[in-house]
Amino acid sequence: MTVGVDLGQPQTQEVRADEDVVRVRQLVRAVAVAVKLSLVDQTKLVTAASELARNTLVYGGGGTVDVMTADNGRRRGVRIVFADSGPGIADLDLALTDGYTTGGGLGLGLSGARRLVDEFEIDTAAGQGTRITVTKWSR
């Protein structure tokens, strides 16, 4: 899993079960290493991916994670898209508050993941599923 990542195109990992969250972490790690993120940035990105992939599974009822490289002309990075067609998030501000949870967790998944990446976009509405895109750039 750590060798032979095809950086040319997005890698997709289905998230249907617990073990898939582990696979997402391994895939993100492999791409982050290939793009030469620093060790701390790799760690932050993989941790954020772990939180968001778990959300996809637990709250979204499963979905897909796409991992790809990004290039803004100056820097390379890793972009990850988490998509599910679950119930969506009705109150986004509330969901992004530290400590808020509907699932019995610590309520740090969304808010914490946002702090760990450089760019964080969320597209969701009640009944419409959730799509989160995060990017981490090399320094």
Binding site: T43, K44, L106, L108, G112, R115, L116
Partner: peptide, 14 residues
């Protein structure tokens, strides 16, 4: 605990 893990944990808010 690895240093990078400690840094990340703190930023995560744990």
């Amino acid at each position: 605990m690895r240093p990078a893990v400690a840094i990340t944990l703190v930023e995560l808010g744990l």
